[in-house]
Design a protein around this nucleic acid. Sequence first.
DNA 1: GACTATAGTGAACCTTGATTCCGCTTGTCA
DNA 2: TGACAAGCGGAATCAAGGTTCACTATAGTC
Lengths: 193, 193
Amino acid sequence: MTTSPNQSERPLRSDARRNRERILTGARAVFAECGSEAQMDDVARRAGVGVGTVYRHYPTKEALQVELVREKFKRFAAEARDALERDGEPFEVLADLMRSNAEALARDAGTQQVLAGAGEHIWTQAAAEQNELLELTSRLIDRARRAGTIRADATATDIGMLMCGLSATMTHPASGFDWHRHLDLLIDMLRPR
Amino acid sequence: MTTSPNQSERPLRSDARRNRERILTGARAVFAECGSEAQMDDVARRAGVGVGTVYRHYPTKEALQVELVREKFKRFAAEARDALERDGEPFEVLADLMRSNAEALARDAGTQQVLAGAGEHIWTQAAAEQNELLELTSRLIDRARRAGTIRADATATDIGMLMCGLSATMTHPASGFDWHRHLDLLIDMLRPR
DNA sequence: GACTATAGTGAACCTTGATTCCGCTTGTCA
DNA sequence: TGACAAGCGGAATCAAGGTTCACTATAGTC
């Protein structure tokens, strides 16, 4: 499933396959904790592997980050797909999705930073996955629109921006800060007049 | 006006005063262009001054950034104060303020980054200025609330978060991206049902 | 005009962290 | 069970960029 850096060449040796998985797991944890300040050495340590091995699998730090962001978008997309299956009032389905995505973001400083504006490079390299997500969101919005339970002028891009924005505010020690409440407001603002 | 790093000691020598102003101007420009990647050497060059001089006035890069962010908040606060003087439909006054602040943000990558979640340190050190701004925003909201032209449950913090969010999205090359349109939507969503 | 406390300068220094490289280990296949 | 290609490890390398410092210049004062 994971977009492997190497094309469709001879299959990886068993130990290599295992290590790649470990690296990914370690990286997920470390980047989630420290955001992009996370160091390659940390990733290696967490994965129980030498730095060299990390570099064998991902030629640069950025490549590794891109992989993680792609994964994350795919996960969001998968959840959106689930939501489309689910039946229930379409707007509420969308709202729940937003809430659960927000929760996931709150736990992951790495993706949060990307969404929040750091790393344009990374962002662009995950464009395909992002578009997939936008597409799915569009469909969710359409359903709600047909049901008349969402503002007619809200687009998938808007939802995306709201989520970016929300994730940006999550890191802020601003006074009176409570992103749950803010998210509730955002959601309510999306309802039709 | 600018919070001078040195307390109320003997007044600066004339050349020092001039240079500090130059440094600030150069720094504003460089940070606006490059965000926090801007280098101290660049600031010095832009100001037409040696790096050493920059360091004489601001002991660290962070100190310089904090100064700039403070300044920026103060400017926002000043605009908010102006808005309070102005008469006109209170909600529209607030909306105009948001638009003009957004415009300013779009021109300033440095502040944008801070708002967008980088630099918690910096953020906390500008807490006082930020609170001042929140306070003024509250008053603007109150007026609109009394006029019944804004959602009753929107707070100053929400406006702040929306602006943070907006600034976060500004850097994004997301497809179909247009922050002006998005901002219009945000503003409209703030109107009462 | 001379004196001195302040201020300016920028090459050198240091730290941090990504990336490389090469000797060693281990799957895999005949 | 060799042979060897694929993979691993991690100390050493390198670059970038913030910060210092020894020296020079100058505003302010008598």
